[in-house]
Amino acid sequence: MQAIVQIRGLCRAYRQGDIEVVALNNISLDIPEGGFTALMGPSGSGKSTLLHIIAGIDRPTSGSCVVRGVNVAELSETELAGWRNSQIGFIFQTFNLIPVLSAFENVEMPLLLTGLSGAERRAHVEAALELVGLQDRMHHLPRQLSGGQEQRVAIARALVTDPTLIVADEPTGNLDARAAADVLELLTVLNRDAGKTIIMVTHDPKAAGFARRMLHLEKGELLRDEEMRGV
């Protein structure tokens, strides 16, 4: 399969006063289209940093990250915003739904930036919510939903624009085992049946077990790259 993300010699350093913290050190890797990749590693190893750079919300200090032929670091802030809207679906550990908007409206938010008509938006939102099994909760506010349901709304929001990549930073970190399993199941279905490319950060080996490939980071360096057989 073709690499949808190509990372070459990627470094990210943070400067704090006189000390330089190297979050990512010379990372090179390819992520194939249609893959489900888990990023693992101890706390502080640079997992989130890598994910943020791939998602275009952080910039490398050096090296490059090319997503579908676009070198993300070369885009301006404004271009990057439009790029994120069409190319990236981001799933957060803490869901990050807008509390004053219903499930439906939360999923609709990224579509407001597209040229779609109200009717087209409605169709997309309903399809996305149906996919995550929440068609009967469309008009609930986030606080009227369970954590697992909130995360499924967030997943619907991430996939409603039909992005190139779905990235998730510890999507099960705030969920109990049961809800976590539902979310992972859902991501697996999206990957397997809808062909979505997914990159997921996690420190839970069980969660990583759902992925088809595992990348291990430690102290900002890529340690191991394991291909897994179908479970």
Binding site: G82, R84, N85, F90, N96, P110, L113
Partner: peptide, 13 residues
Amino acid sequence: REIAVLKVLGFRG
């Protein structure tokens, strides 16, 4: 925080 989330979703400044 919500403003940051909107930016992640693709909203421009």
